[in-house]
Structures are given as structure tokens and as C-alpha cells.
Simulated assay, not measured.
Amino acid sequence: MSKMHIEGKRIVRRRTSVAVSALVLVSLCGCSGPAPDAAPVAAQLNEEQQTLYALGAALANNLRELELTADERAFVLAGFQESAAGEAARVDVTSFMPKIQSLHLQRQAKAIAQRREQGAVFLDQQAAQSGAMKTATGLVYQELTAGSGRGVAEHDTVTVHYEGKLPDGKVVDSSRKRAKPTQFRVNGVIACWKEALLRMNVGGRSRVVCPADLAYGNGGSPPVIPPGATLDFDIELIEVSKPDDPRGS
């Protein structure tokens, strides 16, 4: 899993896992057998080979949101293998570029619509939980632990521990797994985080479920956060630093 963290309204990638690349390639090609573990792969491949591995993963990532079936992946793989081998293409690739773009837009729009529909159901389910509330903007806020320290203002810098998931439970980022809290300015994060933090006090912990429009919208943050995704965060507010008080609280 790539190491990620919230920063300036986007998720920033820090490093690439070879194991993740292997999984993506297996998925694209429909190959059988488990993907190799990260340590053995890293030990077996030199730097140039790992770069080529990353190239394959990058190509696969561009196709992932098309949600191709096994039969469709077979056609894609055939085109790739034959072209890479220098064989004559079976179709006029240039003339099909507009159709490729159209296919991408159609599949993407369908996936986003389905993801938003599923997200809306998830938001309603979480809003019905004891102690949860849906705000006017559409996010679901649930206080897990009340804080007793100072509150948060828009221009403050905060230190937090957090974990973010997709509605299916897949973790997209976690400072807790890194065992290191994260610090950032309140007015530099996605809208749902800002709204939630302004409700919190130091020492508090909250669950925040963010609709796509208050998170990463239809653009998502590929390859980890899909376009149109609803996000489920657990946020613990550790410290607040005012602009004129670098010591925090």
C-alpha cells in the first residue's frame, strides 16, 4: 500500500509498493496465482526492472476505472501484446482514438453514478447511527469522544491522528498505521475535514463521513480514491496551534 496523507485538498503519494503493482498487473491480465510479496520481488528485480514494473502498473491504473470484464481485458491484452511485438494492428488505431475516449467517458460516468448512489445509501445508514447527525452540507458527523481543550479556528494548524476508508471498509490512508500524527493548516484541507475540525476540541475524536462533493469529487485521487467516492474518516484532534502561538495546546 502506498504511503499517503492528507495535504492541501489532495492525497499525496510518497512511495510505490512493488506488491501493489503486481496485484494490478494480475488483475489486468487475468493471470492466475497470487501476486508475489513485496520483499521477494524487490530482492529479485533490479532498479530498471522495477521501473518497467511500475510502467505496467501505471498503464493498468489508467484502465482500472473502465471496470473491464475478463473478455474485454483479453482484447486489451491482445492489442498490447501484438503492438509491443511489432505486429500489424488489426484495426486502424488512429481512427479509433475518438471511440476509445468515448468508451472511457461512458464507463467513467457509469462508475461515478453507481459510486455516488452507493455513497448516498451509506451516508443515510451512518446518519441513522446513535449520536450521528447529517449537517446542512451533507456530511455525517458523529462525536466519539468529547474534547476538553481549545477549539479550532479556520487559520489554525492542527495535529491529528486519522484513518480514512471507502464505504466497503478499504483503508485509503492511516496516520495510525504509520504511528505518526499529521500536522496541517485547517484552511488547506478538503471541505468535509474543515467543517468537522471546526466542530472539535483538543482531545476529541470524531467519525466523519464525507460525500464526494465535500471530498475529492468526480476527479477522485487515483489510484487510491476512486472518482465520486464517499469517504469515512476517524479523526482524533491532538493539538491546535494558533498563528501567533507555535506551542499549540
Rank of each mutant, 00 (worst) to 15 (best):
D92C: 04
L28T: 05
G147H: 06
S130E: 15
Q125F: 04
R115D: 05
R14A: 00
A19H: 13
G119V: 06
A70W: 06
A35F: 02
A136F: 07
F96L: 14
F122Y: 12
R15Y: 00
D234L: 09
V93Q: 09
P222E: 10
G188V: 03
A127E: 11
L139A: 05
P34Y: 12
I112D: 05
L237P: 02
P226I: 03
E154Q: 08
V18N: 11
E87M: 11
R116K: 15
T157M: 12
A22C: 09
M1G: 03
L23M: 09
A88Y: 05
Q125P: 00
R199G: 01
Y53E: 09
V171T: 15
V76C: 01
E87R: 15
L63Y: 01
K165M: 12
I238R: 15
K110H: 12
C210T: 05
N201D: 06
K134Q: 14
K134M: 14
I100V: 09
G131F: 07
H5I: 04
I235Y: 11
A54N: 12
A146Q: 13
V18Q: 10
A70F: 02
V172F: 13
A74K: 14
A109Q: 12
A146P: 01
M1Q: 04
F184Y: 12
L55P: 00
A39C: 03
T230I: 04
G86W: 14
Q106L: 10
R15F: 00
R64N: 07
E65H: 12
G151V: 05
V171N: 09
K99F: 13
A58C: 06
A153I: 06
R176N: 04
E7T: 05
P34G: 06
Q106C: 02
D37G: 08
I100E: 09
G56V: 00
T230N: 06
S175K: 13
R185K: 15
R90A: 08
G119P: 05
G164H: 10
Q183A: 10
P223Q: 12
F184G: 02
A70P: 02
P222T: 08
S174P: 01
E154F: 09
V209K: 10
N187M: 11
K110I: 05
D173T: 13
G86P: 05
H104K: 15
G33H: 10
E195D: 07
V189S: 08
V189I: 06
G203C: 03
S21H: 11
V186E: 01
S130Y: 14
